[in-house]
Design a protein around this nucleic acid. Sequence first.
DNA 1: TAGAGCTACCCACAATTACCCACAATTCCC
DNA 2: GGGAATTGTGGGTAATTGTGGGTAGCTCTA
Lengths: 167, 167
Amino acid sequence: MTDETENSGSDVAGNSRNYGFNGQFRYSLDEKGRVAIPAPFRRGVVAADDIDSFQLTVGFDNALFAFPYEYWREVVERQINNLSVMEARARSFTRAIFSNAVTCKPDKQGRITIPPNLRRYARLDSEVVIAGVYNRLEIWAAEIWEEYERLTLDRFEEVVEDFDIRF
Amino acid sequence: MTDETENSGSDVAGNSRNYGFNGQFRYSLDEKGRVAIPAPFRRGVVAADDIDSFQLTVGFDNALFAFPYEYWREVVERQINNLSVMEARARSFTRAIFSNAVTCKPDKQGRITIPPNLRRYARLDSEVVIAGVYNRLEIWAAEIWEEYERLTLDRFEEVVEDFDIRF
DNA sequence: TAGAGCTACCCACAATTACCCACAATTCCC
DNA sequence: GGGAATTGTGGGTAATTGTGGGTAGCTCTA
């Protein structure tokens, strides 16, 4: 573990009643392209007993999104399933989503291997931040993450106002 | 294996509970016109025990589509079956789809042979990308694929908005 | 019917990957 | 505070995968 962005996260994520991933974790991407899944997120993803996998895909803001497999399955069934192959934009979307996705099952050490095309998309080289964001994990290049946080965290209060969130 | 668009794909795709093909793989088309089927896609296509074949056809955007045989059979029965021979456009469509199709069974090494007319259609020469796109594989000439991805992946976020996909 | 060309099937090998073990550092818990 | 468990990271090995090539059988032609 490196020490700049120390790791923090709730263990409640392991609970099956867990309501959302949270915390941020900094890891190194090793020579084989492997990165650790934050320990609190490893358990509680299991749907059927041999599927404790994540669906890893391209996401927004140069990050990768990783969904619990079962959740991903629902999204596909409810939303992507009924897009028509006949429509060019729908094809383009479906292609992007699926061809840039991997179903990955953590190894015994809790790591996943990120394929080269996804590494490229997210500009990952050696330092990586994994953030828990409600229903997904986000995998960022550490530098990009830090820059992003620096820019947006200042404006947190403004943003909350925009959305009229009532705590 | 070449190294620019390295291969990526999930092994869970082999699972019968698999929900859709995904990942992208780069292969070389050999002198005999053979190309490897991505390993994760080889298993789990079996319907009856001697039918572990793909139906290979002309697809959209200069790509070839390959469907698991059983899935193809359903599509034909449910949809193509009730097109009328009386309608010129329907005839043309049916002709194109069937006359440019092959049922192909991977050899012991997991390769299929792509017939010349399909190679021509998809402008395949030596470098090929095979993408898993939900219910089908797509076979592209590597250059065309890269160009296509370059154009569409940037616009990914817009497209998601357009389709109002909620993760 | 013999030969030429083609195709399907098999073997072989190099490169890559997946899986397992090990260990140090950190965290947890009494 | 100290021992035990967990966690992050590196590396080794066996299995898988990608790719080239050979041969037998088939088809088509002369």
